[in-house]
Write a protein that binds this DNA or RNA. Structure first.
Length: 490
RNA sequence: GGCGGCGUAGCCAAGCGGUAAGGCGACGGCCUGCAAAGCCGUGAAUCCGGGGUUCGAAUCCCCGCGCCGCCUCCA
């Protein structure tokens, strides 16, 4: 184990920040609610995937052996409605959106979870679990449906802080004659004509929304899982129901730590399909480098709401550009003379140690990625200043810079997933993407930049400035350094 | 109505009882053929308002005000 301090994390079950102690260290089991494959993913889905990806990476960095499950809901009402509306087979619909989601997570550079199970492929496990609940007297059959009887599960509401009586009083669910109590929720739904179905002891039908997660968590991770995650909006009823189903069947605690992240807002309002204020990942990935999107998502504490605006992402983009510039110089630095560390270099070395310590403690303290990024940027600044002010590096100083580069890769790159790319590669991706939108290609621009550099060297400032103005009209900003010219697109 | 959260510089944002991190932007000087960049320097008598606890509060308590989420599908 690498940690000097312990990981502490906010547990939605206890509403407190707790020391993280898995049941069977070094093993950690983690289940995260993924997407329902009925539409394109938006920033909110990405936040969930990114937050838990970084959490997964952090656990691995700390030396845990993590079994990470992120499920896919590929059969439910929304899918049926949508495929009916489009007049296509439901599986074709889900395949399309699962593929899209895979492309998004790949573009974002997220690690593959250990398992990505789909509901439709676990029908027999689901049926077995429902049977167990019926057997335990917690579920009842009604006209081909099977419902979970909330009144029979006394601790119902423990996660969301609700009481059964209060829920009944404020009930907004449409009243169904099939239910004994309006709060009862479907474990199995009988199939209407033309709906997809599977055979079951209760006739043809399909699983309810919540039961799949209980069944798959149980199958891949066992009766008690260490971490269960998802968005805040899943606390009720989804996670509440999962607890009822799982604990109702096994009699064991279902989850040790529930982790919920905040939602994306737009002008302070929740980003959602129904409000129509969502930005798709396709849109964002066409405009921003994936690492910029990730950095933006990690710039706020995971439990807080994150307000989206294109301007906010652009601000982060500038910070990441600069970060890559530092990495560029860091990787390019060569010693010019034999020698030891100067006074300033020794100070930088101390900063490196402080940075490592601060960065890790920030993450250990309820996963404070925003703070960790603050330390990263401030250290990066110091490194940048050192490099620009000390061109005549000694051999020892050059070794120090190498060490810094490695450390940044190890911490920011491997844990946050920011700074993983080679600078040249980062710029290429970024530039190609943006040039496409204005109908230019990379070669064309680079030639212009070179022509200008040549003109400048020949003191032909009229031509140099003319090219600079032309580039500026494309939204390209030049940045001259002693040895070369960088360029950025606004 | 019930439950929960939030309100920190122009904007984003950390802060969890010890005297306000970081990013973006802005301003002044140096540098530069001129710009940009870089370098040096400048920012919150103050953390929505009002009380209280404390030697000490952005941080804890109480009362307001404003915003948001969940209670129905939702990451």
């Amino acid at each position: 184990m690498k940690q000097k301090k312990n990981l502490r994390i906010y547990n939605s079950l206890t509403k407190k920040i707790e020391k993280f102690v898995p049941s069977n260290p070094p093993k950690v089991t983690m289940y995260v609610c993924g997407i329902t494959a009925y539409d394109s993913s938006h920033l909110g889905h990405a936040r969930s995937a990114v937050v838990f990806d970084v959490f997964y990476r952090l656990l691995k960095y700390l030396g845990y052996e993590v079994v990470y499950v992120r499920n896919i809901t590929d059969i439910d009402d929304k899918i049926i409605n949508r495929s009916n509306k489009e007049g296509i087979f439901w599986r074709d619909l889900t395949e399309r959106y699962i593929k899209e989601y895979e492309e998004v997570t790949k573009a974002l550079g997220l690690l593959k979870p250990t398992y990505e199970p789909r509901a439709s492929e676990h029908i027999s496990e689901i049926i077995a679990l429902i049977e167990k609940l019926v057997e335990n007297g917690l579920a009842y059959q009604s006209n081909g449906d099977v419902y979970f009887e909330v009144a029979k599960f006394p601790s119902y509401g423990k996660l969301s802080g609700r009481k059964i009586e209060e829920l009944i009083a404020g009930v907004r669910i449409e009243v169904s004659q099939k239910k004994r109590n309006p709060l009862d929720f479907a474990l199995w739904k009988s199939a209407k004509p033309d709906e997809p179905f599977w055979e079951s002891p209760w006739g043809k039908g399909r699983p309810g929304w919540h039961i799949e997660c209980s069944a798959m968590a149980l199958k891949y991770l066992g009766e008690t899982i260490d971490i269960h995650g998802g968005g805040l909006d899943l606390i009720f009823p989804h996670h509440e129901n999962e607890i009822a189903q799982s604990e109702g069947a096994t009699g064991k605690p279902f989850v040790k730590y529930f982790i919920h992240h905040g939602l994306i807002t737009v002008n302070g309002e929740k980003m959602s399909k129904s409000l129509g204020n969502f930005v798709t990942m396709e849109y964002l990935l066409n405009r921003f480098h994936p690492e910029v999107i990730k950095a933006f998502l990690l710039s706020t504490h995971y439990r807080s709401p994150l307000d989206y605006s294109e301007q906010n992402i652009k601000n982060m983009e500038k910070a990441i550009y600069r970060f890559y510039e530092t990495l560029y110089w860091l990787r390019k630095a060569q010693p010019l003379k034999e020698g030891l560390l100067s006074e300033k270099a020794r100070k930088l070395e101390r900063s490196l140690n402080e940075f490592e310590e601060n960065f890790i403690s920030a993450l250990l303290d309820d996963f404070n990625t925003a703070l960790a990024m603050g330390y990263l940027f401030s250290f990066e600044n110091e490194v940048y200043n050192f490099i620009t002010r000390n061109p005549n590096l000694t051999t020892e100083e050059s070794l120090l810079l190498e060490k810094i580069d490695k450390k940044i890769k190890e911490l920011s790159g491997k844990i946050l997933g920011i700074g993983e790319a080679e600078p040249e590669e980062f710029w290429k991706v970024e530039r190609t993407k943006k040039l496409q939108s204005i109908g230019k290609n990379l070669q064309e621009i680079e030639n212009l930049v070179k022509q200008r550099e040549k003109a400048r060297k020949e003191k032909n400032f009229v031509l140099a400035d003319k090219i600079r103005d032309e580039l500026k009209s494309f939204g390209i900003i030049l940045k001259d350094t002693k040895t070369e010219t960088f360029w950025y697109m606004e």
